[in-house]
Write a protein that binds this DNA or RNA. Structure first.
Ligand SMILES: [Mn+2]
Ligand SMILES: [Mn+2]
Ligand SMILES: [Zn+2]
Ligand SMILES: [Zn+2]
Lengths: 143, 143
DNA sequence: TAATTTATTGCAAAAATTTGCAATAAGGAA
DNA sequence: TTCCTTATTGCAAATTTTTGCAATAAATTA
């Protein structure tokens, strides 16, 4: 029983198909919960889906993002775009000097985002925000 | 008189150098104001800096982002990471179904971000947030 | 101005990501 | 179950992005 059964109805309702490749990738994202690079996802998912290829990994991640099942996150300083399963709302605050990071809970930005949902008419906003700043340590060093 | 003279002191104070390549790229970003892909930046900047190469463009954009002079933005549906000069604070709300987008003014999220600056100790947060949602039209179609 | 230091660049090659298209297989219909 | 339609995949090739390293040039000093 794969966790992919959670997502299958969602996809089929929109005319998409649940394939073994998508199951494997969703399984990896779902159980890791973390931000994973395409390469990490490829390595882990192909244990369940032998024959899996890189083009499929990239296309699937883009597909999941477009459909609101995964969130992309670009972290300055890391070259690869990472993906994470949609779950607990949270955001990232990263020091652009030393790279140290802080996870920001949903209470910080979420109210403003819900407000925006109301005023814009857009709905189902998945927020996965990466903010860049200077951490306290680097503020001192920079003067 | 290039607009790069605006940025030179900033860089030199941190031990970096203002080069003809950086001048050209800053000039392009500064006067466009828009989100530009590395390829667009390369094409425009090399008019002023002949001999400019792609590795330099990529390294410079990463450099400007790390130093708070430019903001990267990953737009789901577009493959390339785009960059924009740091200027008016604003955010993007994009429909993950049809791609239509809305610019979100600084009043929507900025108060929450200033609040976060206070509570986290991080400072000089450049926010350039891309939020994904479903626009009103696509909400109807999706049911 | 000339010399010095080293941040930055260009080049060539490697690695990552995207694309076109024919083959495959998921899901629905018979 | 078998047949159909077409969304999805794998493959090969194209394109984009990154990296190592020697050559270059910005800024400081003499
Ligand atoms: Mn995250
Ligand atoms: Mn923008
Ligand atoms: Zn820091
Ligand atoms: Zn839409």
């Amino acid at each position: 029983m794969s966790c992919a059964s959670l997502y299958a109805p969602e996809l089929r309702a929109r005319g998409f198909r649940m394939t073994s490749q998508r199951k494997a990738i969703l399984h990896v994202l779902h159980h890791s919960g973390d931000h994973l690079s395409p390469a990490e996802i490829f390595e882990r998912a192909r244990r369940e889906a032998p024959g899996l290829t890189y083009p499929t990994v990239y296309r699937t991640l883009e597909f999941l993002a477009k459909n609101g099942l995964a969130m992309p996150a670009h972290i300055v300083g890391k070259k690869q775009l990472a993906y994470q399963i949609v779950g607990e709302s949270h955001h990232h605050l990263i020091c652009r000097s030393c790279g140290s990071s802080l996870e920001v809970g949903l209470d910080a930005l979420e109210p403003a985002i819900r407000q925006l949902e109301a005023s814009s008419g857009y709905r189902f906003i998945n927020s996965h925000v990466t903010l860049l700043g200077l951490c306290p340590k680097c503020q001192k060093e920079a003067g």
